[in-house]
C-alpha cells in the first residue's frame, strides 16, 4: 500500500480518525525512520492521540500535539512544532484533523505549504454506522464543507465503518456497497477498509474479506481502558 510523504485523516467527528491516524503512524514507522504524528484536533477535548503516547514512543514516532490535550484547558491550540513536518522533507507525516469543517479549519494554515511541496494524501474517513453520515448526500455535504474549511482537496477514502466493541465482520462487510457508492459519487478511490485486527485473524479470513472490501488495514486500538480491572 502506498505511503505518501504526508497523510491527512479528516472526516465527520467520531468516524475514527484518531484511532486510524495512530495505527497508520505505527504501520508507517515499520517502513520509514522519521515518522511524525501530528495531532491538529482543535475540537475534541477528551479522546486524543496522547492516549496512545506509550505505543507511539515505543515505535520511535514523534508525537506533535497541543500540550493542553487531555487537560482542563478548553481552548483550541495548535502545536508550533507542526511546521517541522512541512519544512523537513525527510520526515513522514501523519496528520489527525479534528472533526467536520470546524476541525478541518486547522489545516488551512498549512494548505499552501502542502500544495507547494506535493506528495500528500488527504483521506476522508467514513463510518456508515454514525447517525449523521448514513447516506450519500450527508457525506457529500461534509466532504465539501471540510474541503472549503481546510482549503485542501481529498485524494481518497477510508471505510472505517464500525460499531465499536460490538463490531462483527459481517457488520463491516455490509458497508462495502455504501463505501463503493460514496467512492463513485465523490470520484475518490477507496484506499482501504479498516478492520480491528481481531476480526481478520488468519490469512483465509483476510483474503475473503478483501474480495468484498478491497485493501484491508488491520487496526489495533489504543483507548482508555480505565474501567476494566
Amino acid at each position: 500500500m502506498h505511503l505518501a510523504r504526508i497523510t491527512i485523516f479528516a472526516g465527520h467527528f467520531g468516524s475514527g480518525k484518531t484511532s486510524l491516524a495512530v495505527a497508520y503512524a505505527l504501520w508507517a514507522s515499520k517502513q520509514k525512520d522519521r515518522v511524525i504524528l501530528c495531532d491538529l484536533d482543535i475540537v475534541n477535548p477528551y479522546f486524543r492521540t496522547a492516549d496512545a503516547a506509550e505505543a507511539l514512543k515505543g515505535a520511535g514516532i514523534r508525537l506533535v500535539a497541543s500540550r493542553f490535550a487531555n487537560t482542563n484547558v478548553d481552548a483550541p491550540a495548535m502545536p508550533s512544532e507542526t511546521r517541522a513536518l512541512f519544512d523537513d522533507p525527510d520526515t513522514t507525516g501523519i496528520i489527525d484533523l479534528g472533526g467536520d469543517d470546524r476541525g478541518a479549519l486547522a489545516l488551512g494554515r498549512y494548505a499552501g505549504l502542502l500544495q507547494s511541496r506535493g506528495g500528500y494524501e488527504m483521506l476522508l474517513v467514513i463510518n456508515q454506522y454514525r447517525p449523521l453520515t448514513r447516506n450519500l448526500d450527508d457525506l457529500c455535504q461534509i466532504k465539501e464543507e471540510i474541503e472549503t474549511a481546510s482549503k485542501v482537496g481529498f485524494t481518497g477514502l477510508v471505510n472505517n465503518s464500525n460499531l465499536a466493541a460490538e463490531t462483527t465482520l459481517s457488520d463491516v462487510l455490509a458497508t462495502a456497497e455504501f463505501a463503493a457508492g460514496v467512492a463513485a459519487r465523490l470520484g475518490l478511490p477507496l484506499k482501504m477498509t479498516a478492520l480491528e485486527r481481531c476480526l481478520v485473524q488468519g490469512e483465509g479470513v483476510r483474503r475473503k474479506a478483501q474480495l468484498t472490501l478491497g485493501e484491508i488495514f488491520p487496526l489495533d486500538l489504543y483507548k482508555k481502558q480505565g474501567w476494566k480491572l
Binding site: 454506522y129 465499536a164 460490538e166 457488520d171 455490509a174 458497508t175
Partner: peptide, 16 residues
C-alpha cells in the same frame, strides 16, 4: 446490516 448506530452519549440524548 446491523440496526444499530454508533453514537456519542451527547448525540444519543439529542436523538432521544
Amino acid at each position: 446490516m446491523a440496526s444499530k448506530v454508533l453514537m456519542k452519549g451527547n448525540e444519543a440524548i439529542a436523538e432521544g
